[in-house]
Every structure is written in C-alpha cells, then in structure tokens.
Simulated scan of single mutants.
Amino acid sequence: MGQSQVVGPSEPIVALVGDDVILPCHLEPAVDVVSGSVEWGRPDLEPRFVHVWHLGQDLLVNQNPSYQGRTSVSAENLKHGDLSLRLSAVKHSDNGKYRCYFASQAKETTQTAVTFGSVSAPVISGINLNSSTVVLECESKGWYPEPEVLWLDGEGNLLSAGPTETVRGPDDLYTVSSRVTVEKRHSNTECFPATSVSTVRFTMVLVVILIFTCVAAFVVWKWTQNQMKGTGPVLCDAHN
C-alpha cells in the first residue's frame, strides 16, 4: 500500500449544467481502500469539504452546503483503488479545482472541472433578400464561458458575418445570436458556437447538436417550401 500513487486526469473535465459527471481519481497500483479515508475538497471554498469517506462510510458532517445530496463515492470501486467522485446535477458554481486526497498515503492530486452550461442546439432561420441571397440567423442559449460564433460554408470555409450579439442571463449563462448573408448555393452553411477555452473538447457535443439542428432545419425548410411554393431559403445542410 505504501507504494501506491494517487493519480488524477491529465485534462480538465468538461460537463454540462444539469448533467451528472465523474471526477476520476485512482491509486496505482490499485489497493483496497474501502476501510481508509478519502477526502474530496475545493481549496477555494469554506468549508472546503465536497465529500469525505472515512472507515467504510460517508462522513458528511462538514460538507459544504452547496454539495449536499449531490456527491457520492462507490464502496465497490474503493475496493479496487478507485477514489472517483460522482457529482450530480452539475451547477455553474461547481466550476473550479478539486482535490482528491487519500489520507493513508498523505498524497493528493488536483483537477479542474469545467462547466459549459445547458447548451441548446443552434436554431437557424432564413430570410430571403432576393432570388440569389438569403440572411441566415443562428441563436443558441445556455453557454458558459461566453462563446464566439463561427459560420462555415459547405466546403468548410469561414464566412464573414456581422457582430455577434451576446446576452448574459441571471443564471450567468450566455445567449448568443449572429447573422450572415450568403448565396443560396451555400446549401451546407452551418454555425458553430464554441468557447475559446475548449473548442476541441467540445467537438463531440457539437456533432450531436448539429445532427439535431440539421434535422430541425430540414423540417423548417420543408414547411417553408410548402408555404412559399418553392421560393423559401436554403437552410443548414438542406441540399438543393
């Protein structure tokens, strides 16, 4: 047991507000620590305790009130040296650095949990200017930190758009909207709200978002075509 090392993640943990997230931490080599003491904390809080496991049971007397009822460790996992913390119903205030401490080893590791808000799929709508051009507007809600909006054509080229409008709500989450004027031949035009902090890490979430966006856009496009008798705008991923 004396040779085990406490190991945390090498990259920040990304989570959405309202979701559950696992903050990983484990011992290498793995040993049974279910009868030991494990402390999860945040040095910037008072009290600092997020979750404490001591001698086979939870010890939450001094737990920070903002985490009450939202944290847990698995006794079964502890038998295999897994000290990971489950944090439920993630909130914006959960963003910060967490310390995983195994008392018997007198060693610790720190990690960062980053929240991005309960992001809505970008909603894209179009307005005809003339027979060859259309104005596309993209809006997305629930972002943190504040994102920038990028428009790409069907070939992946960056389009020049107007200034992004940003509104910060009472929950500290951002709503962004942007407009771009394109030729109708750009039938695959897409908007990408993405934070400068973690654009790469958020790619997989954006893929899911875009799938739902394009399905919704196709439905809107078909409805517009019926309403306008074939003269409606070409929207996100709606091929001519």
Rank of each mutant, 00 (worst) to 15 (best):
G2H: 15
Q3H: 13
P9G: 13
S10F: 02
P12K: 00
I13P: 04
V14D: 09
G18I: 06
G18C: 10
D20S: 15
E28T: 14
S37K: 11
S37C: 11
S37V: 15
P43G: 12
L45I: 14
R48W: 00
G56H: 03
D58S: 12
Y67K: 12
T71D: 01
V73T: 04
A75Q: 12
K79W: 00
D82F: 02
L83W: 08
R86S: 11
S88Q: 14
H92T: 12
S93K: 13
S93R: 11
D94Y: 06
R99E: 13
C100S: 10
C100W: 07
C100Q: 05
S104I: 05
E108Q: 14
Q111T: 11
T115P: 03
S118N: 03
V123K: 05
G126K: 09
N130E: 01
S132G: 00
S132T: 10
L136M: 04
G142N: 09
G142Q: 07
Y144W: 11
Y144P: 05
P145D: 03
P145F: 00
E146R: 06
W151F: 13
D153A: 03
G154S: 03
G154A: 15
S160I: 08
E165A: 02
R168V: 13
R168C: 04
D171E: 11
D171F: 04
D172C: 00
L173Q: 05
T175E: 13
S177V: 01
S178I: 00
T181R: 01
V182L: 12
H186M: 07
S187V: 06
S196M: 01
V197C: 01
T203F: 14
V207N: 00
I209H: 13
C214Q: 13
V215M: 06
V220G: 08
V220P: 03
K222V: 15
K222D: 15
T231L: 10
G232Y: 13
C236N: 08
D237A: 11
A238G: 02
